[in-house]
Amino acid sequence: MQIDPRGPRFGAAVTTLILAITLVTRSPWLLALQAVVFAFGAFDASPYGLLFRRLVRPRLGPPSELEDAAPPRFAQGVGLGFAIVGLIGFAAGITPLALGATAAALLAAFLNAAFGLCLGCEMYLIIRRLQPGRTQ
């Protein structure tokens, strides 16, 4: 599937904002909300993507090129992983874990929004490298 690359970028900007407010207010509910968004995003149904298509894209010109949906979808899954760890931190009362995991997800979202760098995608090969080797 091919998508407008500005969609995930817009989503990353909203995610950055939500996670920043999460850190400042230390609200587990906001993080839970973002975790739900990540979960939908991992199945190509991000609410932020919907927001982009309904409200933002009609105001923009057509995209200069399309890109594959798989990388951003994978990155949403990575984001969900961090959000879940953060929620466990909040639930268990381990504040450093909660804030650390939220900060990690925020870092990835910020790099995507500001620099177009997909940290989750970069992690993919490194994770695969750590798994037991195949000869061919």
Binding site: L23, T25, L107, F110, A114
Partner: peptide
């Protein structure tokens, strides 16, 4: 603490 973590994260990101 949250504001400090936010600031550090954004600086590291840049």
């Amino acid at each position: 603490v949250g504001i400090v973590v936010l600031g550090v994260t954004l600086v590291v990101g840049v």
